[in-house]
């Protein structure tokens, strides 16, 4: 079946299977930043935006995004690079595998929350698992990025 979507500001028509999930569709079209790491909708690695909201692309049937606007990290290179510079300056990307999904959710948070507290940041990002960093370095990077003052 065909879907029409706006992917990173380009209108495209894609053929998808009925039981195909968005993460697979995106990867098959070369958006290889999109990673999968669970089958249970709980790791956050596949995070992309559908109509500017963070969602788990591994558990959205591709047919259901017909007519919608999809954004991957490839679609926000400037913002992603700005934050990635801070993240990597901390060394908090480590293996990097969870970073694209994490960055997408950080950017979504920046767009949604005004002056979030440390607890609000942690809460917003809880759905992004990471096994390398222990999260502290990511938190330092996010606080630097958002200009959160200690205390």
């Amino acid at each position: 079946m065909q879907i029409k979507v706006t992917i990173n500001d380009k209108l495209v028509t894609w053929d998808v299977e009925k039981d195909e999930f968005l993460a697979d569709t995106l990867r098959s079209h070369g958006f290889l930043s999109v990673k999968k790491a669970c089958e249970t909708s709980c790791c956050g690695l596949c995070t992309v935006w559908v109509d500017d909201k963070s969602v788990l692309s591994c558990s959205i049937l591709s047919l259901r995004v017909h007519g919608k606007k999809i954004t991957t990290i490839e679609g926000v290179p400037k913002e992603a690079e700005e934050f990635a510079r801070i993240l990597t300056a901390e060394g908090a990307e480590q293996c990097g595998f969870c970073s694209p999904g994490f960055i997408m959710n950080v950017l979504a948070m920046k767009n949604e929350l005004v002056n979030p507290s440390e607890n609000e940041i942690i809460h917003y990002l809880t759905g992004n698992l990471c096994r390398c960093t222990g999260y502290m370095g990511q938190l330092r990077a996010v606080k630097t990025y958002l200009g959160v003052v200690e205390g």
Partner: peptide, 12 residues
């Protein structure tokens, strides 16, 4: 609903 997985999950 606050503690259910994460924001992306609850968005879906």
């Amino acid at each position: 609903v606050h503690n259910i997985i994460g924001v992306q999950f609850r968005n879906g």
